[in-house]
Amino acid sequence: MSEGESKQTHFGYKTVDADKKADLVADVFHSVAAKYDIMNDVMSFGVHRFWKRFTIETAAARPGMKVLDLAGGTGDLTAKFSRLVGSKGSVTLADINDSMLKVGRDKLRDKGIIGNVSYVQANAESLPFPDNHFDIITIAFGLRNVTDKDAALRSMQRVLKPGGKLLILEFSKPKHNLMQKVYDLYSFKVIPQMGKLITNDADSYEYLAESIRMHPDQDTLKNMMIDAGLEQVDYTNLTDGVVALHRGYKF
């Protein structure tokens, strides 16, 4: 890259300047924030609740722990963690997008979840937390929207306590060709139309489908986590690999 030339990255299938991606992603989530929960239920036929429940079970949070729910959006995981860690623990709901953070804060407060939850607007690539701070970090359906995923993984590893656990729940690559074909048809033909009907925004959901295809597959992400300093990294495929839960530890 010559001097003065901007670094490039992907925004869905488009190539954009890396320093512009965060703003483009922000526009998507500003647009969909108000009906994000409804669309999740409709798009996944409610299966996203199973994926998130499996993540909570795998996290094995205990009373007194400190949890970071990164790219936590509307707070589904935060609500569960808040009850598990109790009054002596804490949960930080962090998201780069202020619209999503506001929706999450309002939803959790409406549920009476106040005491042990804090809200931070933060970029995953440079987390504003001390070293060795959290027992558990989760990032659910957020990593694919990060511009520099390697930097984000290093940042997460830094703020984990020794013995801490990182869980990444993200769309991935189906294991079987038939599932891949059905998934592609559904993602590119059906989901944007749902987005148009429910949020009056087909373009944002077309981007979300494209961003899934550009995200690293299971083994690539596993190696990226290892390169970031995490250990005992493995993953579990869910729904034939449409989604995968990666986990790694800091020692």
Rank of each mutant, 00 (worst) to 15 (best):
A94C: 02
G163A: 09
S90M: 13
D106F: 10
T138Y: 04
S155G: 13
S90T: 12
D110I: 06
L143E: 02
I137H: 08
F188S: 10
L93A: 06
D98Q: 12
I136R: 08
L169T: 06
E170Y: 01
A79R: 13
M100R: 08
G163M: 09
S187T: 15
A94Q: 01
G86H: 08
N97L: 02
V120R: 11
F171H: 13
G86L: 02
I114L: 13
S126L: 09
D135C: 05
R158A: 06
N132I: 08
K107L: 12
H176A: 11
K111C: 04
F171S: 14
S118N: 14
P162A: 11
D76V: 03
I136N: 08
D95P: 00
N123P: 02
L166D: 09
D150G: 12
P130W: 08
R154Q: 13
V117Y: 01
G112V: 03
K161L: 12
P130Y: 02
A122F: 04
N116Q: 05
N97Q: 01
P162V: 12
S87V: 12
L127N: 05
K88Q: 14
G142I: 05
K165W: 10
R144H: 05
V117E: 09
R158H: 09
I96M: 12
L84C: 03
M179C: 14
A122K: 05
V159K: 07
K175P: 08
L77Q: 05
D184F: 13
L108I: 07
E170L: 06
D148C: 01
F81Q: 06
R158I: 06
G164C: 08
D131C: 09
A140Q: 05
E125V: 02
R144Q: 06
F134C: 00
L84R: 14
K173Q: 14
F188L: 11
D184L: 12
K165C: 13
L84F: 07
K165Y: 00
G164K: 04
A124D: 05
T78Q: 06
D98K: 11
I168S: 04
L93D: 00
N123E: 11
I168N: 07
S172H: 07
K161R: 15
L169Q: 09
M156S: 03
A140Y: 00
V146N: 02
A122L: 03
I114N: 13
A122H: 08
L77S: 02
A79V: 09
T138M: 02
L153R: 07
Q121V: 07
V117W: 03
D131V: 03
R154A: 08
K88L: 11
P128M: 00
S87G: 09
A94T: 03
R83V: 01
F129D: 00
Y186M: 12
G89N: 03
V146I: 15
T92A: 06
A140C: 09
Q180L: 13
L185Q: 13
I114C: 07
S118W: 07
M156Q: 11
S90Y: 05
G89Q: 10
I136S: 07
D135G: 09
D95G: 01
V159C: 12
S118T: 15
A152T: 00
Q180M: 14
F188A: 10
E170M: 04
N123Y: 09
P162G: 04
I137G: 03
